[in-house]
Deep mutational scan, measured.
Amino acid sequence: RADKQHVLDMLFSAFEKHQYYNLKDLVDITKQPVVYLKEILKEIGVQNVKGIHKNTWELKPEYR
């Protein structure tokens, strides 16, 4: 399990490339446990629960 700041850096870097990611792809990118990753994502992102981007994560507007 990596340092939180290191995980945040990896996530922000990923979100610079694409606006939406599913959790599986973010786990592959960060190599972090799902529960730990979700904890961090809830602080900086929102999970889309409907629409064409259903079940994906994106950054909260203040982090874009």
Rank of each mutant, 00 (worst) to 15 (best):
R1F: 15
R1L: 13
R1N: 02
R1K: 14
R1S: 11
R1V: 14
A2L: 14
A2C: 03
A2M: 14
D3E: 07
D3M: 10
K4C: 06
Q5D: 14
Q5M: 12
H6F: 13
H6V: 15
H6N: 11
H6P: 08
V7H: 03
V7S: 02
L8F: 05
L8H: 09
L8R: 14
D9P: 03
D9Y: 06
D9I: 05
M10E: 06
M10F: 03
M10C: 08
L11F: 03
L11I: 11
L11Y: 00
F12G: 05
S13E: 15
S13D: 15
S13R: 15
A14N: 15
A14H: 10
A14W: 10
A14G: 01
A14F: 11
A14C: 15
F15R: 01
E16K: 12
E16R: 13
E16P: 01
K17W: 02
K17R: 12
K17F: 04
H18N: 02
H18W: 03
Q19W: 05
Q19I: 05
Y20S: 10
Y20N: 06
Y20I: 04
Y20G: 03
Y20P: 02
N22W: 07
N22P: 07
N22Y: 13
N22F: 11
L23M: 09
L23K: 00
D25E: 14
D25S: 08
L26Q: 00
V27K: 11
V27I: 14
D28V: 09
D28E: 15
D28N: 10
I29R: 05
I29F: 10
I29Q: 06
I29N: 02
T30V: 05
T30M: 03
K31W: 01
K31I: 00
K31T: 05
K31A: 08
K31L: 05
Q32H: 06
P33I: 00
V34K: 13
V35F: 07
L37H: 01
L37V: 14
L37S: 00
K38T: 14
K38A: 12
E39K: 11
E39G: 10
I40V: 09
K42R: 12
K42V: 10
K42L: 12
E43D: 09
I44E: 00
I44D: 00
I44M: 03
I44Y: 05
I44G: 02
I44Q: 01
G45D: 01
G45C: 15
G45E: 01
V46K: 14
V46C: 10
N48P: 10
N48L: 06
V49H: 07
K50G: 10
K50N: 13
K50H: 15
K50A: 13
K50E: 15
G51C: 04
G51H: 05
I52S: 12
I52Y: 11
I52D: 14
H53F: 06
K54G: 11
K54Y: 06
K54L: 08
K54M: 11
N55S: 10
T56I: 06
W57N: 02
E58I: 04
E58K: 09
E58A: 14
L59S: 02
L59T: 01
L59M: 08
L59H: 02
L59Y: 01
K60E: 02
Y63V: 10
Y63E: 05
Y63I: 08
R64P: 04
R64E: 08
